[in-house]
């Protein structure tokens, strides 16, 4: 009996919260279907078709797609390099103080979303692909550094220790004893993040960080729906292709 009462209480609480949210935001869902709203929506959707296929627009799109690809690739590469260095500290291989400091840095980098980094970087580096690259590099360095450090912590210490006992220096022992154990994971994580970053790079353009996203933002602002449709299609095709490529590469590594 009391359980039923409790369930009833929860359900009514959720309903109350829903009603309160709607009234606070002043949303009018039914307005979507009132009067000529459906017609307007339909005509706006129709204005996206057919997509613009003029050769000069397509070549512009190709350049934009390449820019997005380059932003994500360079951003991920920089992030992987920075993440690798920071993960060495974060895994506690170089002392306890540097461990907590680098963990703090990684957490900060990671907890700021890339879109916010992009807005900040546009202020710092100006409009364009450079800002987008920096934004992706900063956020992804935080993510990859954390993942790399976890892989390092799980890697056995014996191979490197055996080499140290045979007189090898710390760097050489790391490269021969530890790196072969973590490298496949590091590469797989980087590829996966690269995949995510291509989608992200397409969106970053909205805050002025270059690539396809910026073209989408401009065309939509100028009410050039058919041109925007081409950009959207290009985004979808690019993401699908890269997803397939990255999945194939990771399967080969695994």
């Amino acid at each position: 009996m009391s359980r039923r009462l409790e369930a009833l209480l929860w359900v009514s609480a959720i309903i109350a919260a829903l009603i309160a949210s709607f009234s606070y935001l002043g949303m009018d869902l039914l307005g979507l279907f009132r009067g000529d709203s459906p017609e307007q929506m339909l005509s706006y959707a129709q204005s996206f078709f057919p997509p613009e296929t003029a050769p000069d627009w397509l070549s512009k799109i190709a350049r934009g797609a390449l820019e997005t690809l380059a932003i994500s690739a360079i951003g991920t590469l920089l992030a992987a390099l920075a993440g690798a260095v920071l993960s060495l500290f974060a895994a506690g291989r170089l002392g306890r103080i540097t461990k907590s400091l680098s963990r703090l840095l990684l957490n900060t980098l990671r907890s700021v979303p890339d879109l916010v980094w992009a807005a900040l970087m546009v202020l710092a580096a100006g409009l364009g692909p450079f800002a987008g690259t920096l934004a992706i590099a900063l956020h992804t360095a935080g993510v990859l550094g954390r993942l790399f450090a976890e892989a390092l912590e799980n890697a056995p210490v014996e191979p490197a220790q055996a080499l140290r006992d045979a007189g090898a220096g710390p760097v050489a022992a790391f490269c021969y004893g530890t790196l072969p154990n973590v490298m496949p994971q590091w590469v797989a994580y980087s590829l996966y993040r690269w995949e995510n970053n291509i989608r992200m790079a397409a969106v970053l353009g909205f805050v002025g960080a270059g690539g396809l996203g910026q073209m989408l933002y401009v065309t939509l602002s100028l009410f050039q729906q058919s041109r925007a449709m081409t950009v959207i299609l290009a985004m979808i095709i690019m993401v699908l292709l890269v997803d397939a490529l990255s999945a194939w590469l990771r399967a080969r590594l695994g």
């Binding site: 056995p156 014996e158 191979p159 220790q161 021969y176 004893g177 530890t178 072969p180 154990n181 490298m183």
Partner: peptide
């Protein structure tokens, strides 16, 4: 059991 990285 020699501690060798499996992928080496």
């Amino acid at each position: 059991s020699p501690p060798l990285p499996p992928r080496q």
